[in-house]
Computed example of a mutant assay.
Amino acid sequence: MKIIFLDIDGVLNSELWNKDNEMEISKGKFIDSEKVRLLSKIINETKAKIVLHSGWRFWFDGNIMPLRKEAEYIVEVFKNYDLNIYDKTPDLTTVEIRKSKKFSMVKAQEILLWLDQHDNIEKYVILDDLDLNNKGIEMFQIKTDGVRGLTKENVEEAIRMLNYYDI
């Protein structure tokens, strides 16, 4: 199985998109459908499954059912592109990390724990705009630019990594 560890903010939305879409954001619609279309290209060409490793995963229950309207909206947009969330990473955050919003401190450990719990993973990529502070998984990360979000170049790199590179 191939996996995309997906962050949302800075990947499926961006600072530029946020500036131009204040009305949508006020309605809980934080996702740029153009970025979801780009994500769908990766899925269609690699057959990878999405594992949410974003803070957004807290907006879904253990069965990946939405708990908030923002999560309902992402499910709705994903359905438009025949996408769904396969799973989410475990939560290793502490009260201090949640208060300071320094989730990048544990994201790498959460991904590694998820990988340890799943032995049928052929290849994976991580789409995130943050530095994950871990040299061991750095080579599997496609670091997006939070100002622009997911780009065609990021998509091409992810497809290459999932279809051609060995881990």
Rank of each mutant, 00 (worst) to 15 (best):
residue 127 L to C: 03
residue 115 L to S: 06
residue 66 P to H: 00
residue 141 Q to F: 01
residue 145 D to P: 15
residue 57 R to A: 08
residue 155 V to I: 06
residue 52 L to V: 06
residue 110 E to G: 13
residue 38 L to V: 04
residue 24 E to N: 10
residue 166 D to S: 11
residue 32 D to E: 12
residue 73 Y to Q: 05
residue 48 A to K: 03
residue 18 N to H: 07
residue 117 Q to M: 15
residue 1 M to C: 06
residue 3 I to M: 08
residue 154 N to E: 09
residue 142 I to H: 10
residue 3 I to V: 14
residue 19 K to H: 04
residue 97 I to T: 07
residue 14 S to D: 10
residue 56 W to C: 00
residue 51 V to M: 12
residue 29 K to R: 14
residue 47 K to Y: 04
residue 58 F to E: 14
residue 51 V to T: 06
residue 75 V to T: 14
residue 72 E to L: 01
residue 35 K to R: 13
residue 63 N to C: 04
residue 68 R to M: 07
residue 132 L to W: 02
residue 24 E to F: 09
residue 63 N to Q: 13
residue 41 K to F: 08
residue 120 N to G: 07
residue 83 L to K: 08
residue 51 V to K: 11
residue 90 P to N: 12
residue 20 D to W: 01
residue 153 E to I: 05
residue 162 L to K: 12
residue 92 L to G: 10
residue 99 K to I: 02
residue 63 N to H: 08
residue 112 L to R: 13
residue 61 D to K: 04
residue 44 N to T: 00
residue 129 D to Y: 07
residue 3 I to C: 06
residue 154 N to Y: 05
residue 152 K to T: 11
residue 103 F to Q: 07
residue 158 A to I: 00
residue 14 S to L: 02
residue 76 E to D: 14
residue 108 A to S: 15
residue 128 D to E: 11
residue 19 K to M: 12
residue 53 H to W: 09
residue 67 L to W: 01
residue 14 S to F: 01
residue 152 K to Q: 15
residue 27 K to S: 08
residue 2 K to V: 00
residue 89 T to C: 15
residue 101 K to N: 14
residue 107 K to L: 06
residue 34 E to K: 12
residue 8 I to E: 09
residue 14 S to N: 11
residue 71 A to T: 00
residue 95 V to S: 14
residue 111 I to N: 11
residue 17 W to G: 11
residue 11 V to I: 05
residue 44 N to P: 00
residue 106 V to S: 08
residue 163 N to G: 02
residue 20 D to R: 12
residue 123 K to V: 00
residue 131 D to Q: 02
residue 80 N to F: 00
residue 121 I to S: 11
residue 65 M to C: 02
residue 92 L to D: 10
residue 16 L to F: 04
residue 32 D to Y: 03
residue 83 L to W: 05
residue 157 E to Y: 04
residue 63 N to P: 04
residue 20 D to M: 11
residue 124 Y to T: 05
residue 114 W to P: 07
